[in-house]
Amino acid sequence: MSTNGSTPFVHMRGVSKWFGSLNVLDKIDLDVAEHNVVCLIGASGSGKSTLLRCLNRLEHVEEGEIVVDGQQITDPKLDVNVLRRKVGIVFQAYNLFPHMTVLQNVVLAPRKAGGFSREGAESQARALLRRIGLESKADEYPDRLSGGQQQRVAIVRALAMGPKVLLLDEITSALDPQLVSEVLNLVRELAESGMTMIIATHEMGFAREVADKVCFLDAGRILEEGTPQEIFSAPKEPRTREFLSRVLEAEKLG
């Protein structure tokens, strides 16, 4: 499935990381096959975001190895800018560039780092915006868009670089509940189109639906992993059960 045939598309072995004395990632082993969707669940502070940020070298890893698309990304000599064109990431707070229009947000990286011509980048960007129904907003500034629209633009901005894997870091957590579904619909479409994705999420129903594999993180470790069926219907670890019942309760209250 992966390019060199022997290892999966994303391969993490014994990855550990500390913030000072806090062990945020503790011997993480994770494999993600191409065209698969892996969901990371777990409480805030369990290490989901940090794990994602290690995969595009926004964070530095102290121990272990990470291979993406056959390339050792823990190698200090690695050109991170090349890696990041392959590994897109979308953040909880969208992080659109507020001084640029929607179109400029989407074309910036393809033009400056992706080798696209101005025309090429713009026609691609317009096609992507059309696909998410926001072509009419191309010349608006981000603050004129709703949170859900901004987040969809952020996803499209990441897609414009043609990444081979997309990391989604709790991308619906900052959204009003009624805006969540428009973002999740887009992610669902991407999953159906075969995009490899690693998704940190609190949306359990969504994880259950789109994930090929679900990993439960607790205190920097992957405590349990399996198919959605295994994790959500028959969790083995008491911590997983406890977490899921708490989330379920919160959803009922909400």
Binding site: N56, R84, G88, N95, F97, L108, K112, R157, A158
Partner: peptide
């Protein structure tokens, strides 16, 4: 800092991130 993180994540270099973002 999240603005820099977003720019660098898209593959822009440090200099490009400063210049454009």
């Amino acid at each position: 800092p999240s603005q820099r993180a977003a720019a660098r994540s898209l593959g822009l270099s440090y200099a490009q991130t400063m210049r454009y973002v």
